[in-house]
Amino acid sequence: MLKQLLSLLATGGVHTPSELAARLGVTESLLEQMLADLSRMGYLRSDSGSTCPAAHCTECPLEDACAVGEPGGKVWTLTDKALR
C-alpha cells in the first residue's frame, strides 16, 4: 500500500489528501500516518518550515492572500530514494 502511495505521488503534480485516500481506499487519517511513516523512512520530505515559502512569509506582501503558507498546507516531496 505504501508503494502504491509512492507510485501515485511519482506521477507528479499536486494531490489532495482526500483524493489520495480515496484512491488507496483508506481514510485521510491513515493516509496522514502513512505519509509520516514514509517521511520517517526517508522516502518523502516535508518542505514546510525549511525551504518552503512559509519561512519567508513574514517578508511577503501577499502573506494573507497566499494559499501556501496556510496552516496545514503541507508540502511533501519525493526524495531520490523514492524515485529510484
Partner: peptide, 11 residues
Amino acid sequence: GAHVAFIMELP
C-alpha cells in the same frame, strides 16, 4: 523535467 509531486491539504 523530472516530476516532483506534492500534497496540498485543502481547507
